[in-house]
């Protein structure tokens, strides 16, 4: 890969990391903290059959 192209890619990835970090540093909103607090009390629905990770099957399978 040409050096300049590699440098450009590195810079783009650095900025991607920065904007992701910025969002990941934000405090969780109260509604999500509340959800975690009451998670144990959530009534669990019957588990749907798990097939693959296509969009219609939202839970997919465990990733290795």
């Amino acid at each position: 890969m040409p050096l300049r192209k590699k440098a450009l890619r590195t810079q783009i990835d650095e900025n991607l990391r920065l904007i992701f970090e910025e969002d990941a540093r934000a405090e969780l909103p109260d509604r999500l903290l509340s959800l975690l607090d009451r998670l144990d009390a959530v009534e669990l629905p019957p588990v749907a059959p798990i097939t693959d990770a296509e969009p219609n099957d939202d839970t997919g399978g465990s990733s290795s």
Partner: peptide
């Protein structure tokens, strides 16, 4: 919120030792 509820409901299908973050990302994007 939707992702957490789905993950919690489907936690029995999650295999311990596998990558939970990747599993959660998959549920979220799906």
């Amino acid at each position: 919120q939707d992702t957490v509820l789905k993950a919690w409901a489907g936690m029995d299908g999650f295999q311990q030792g596998s990558n939970m973050r990747a599993w959660l990302f998959t549920i979220l994007r799906n």
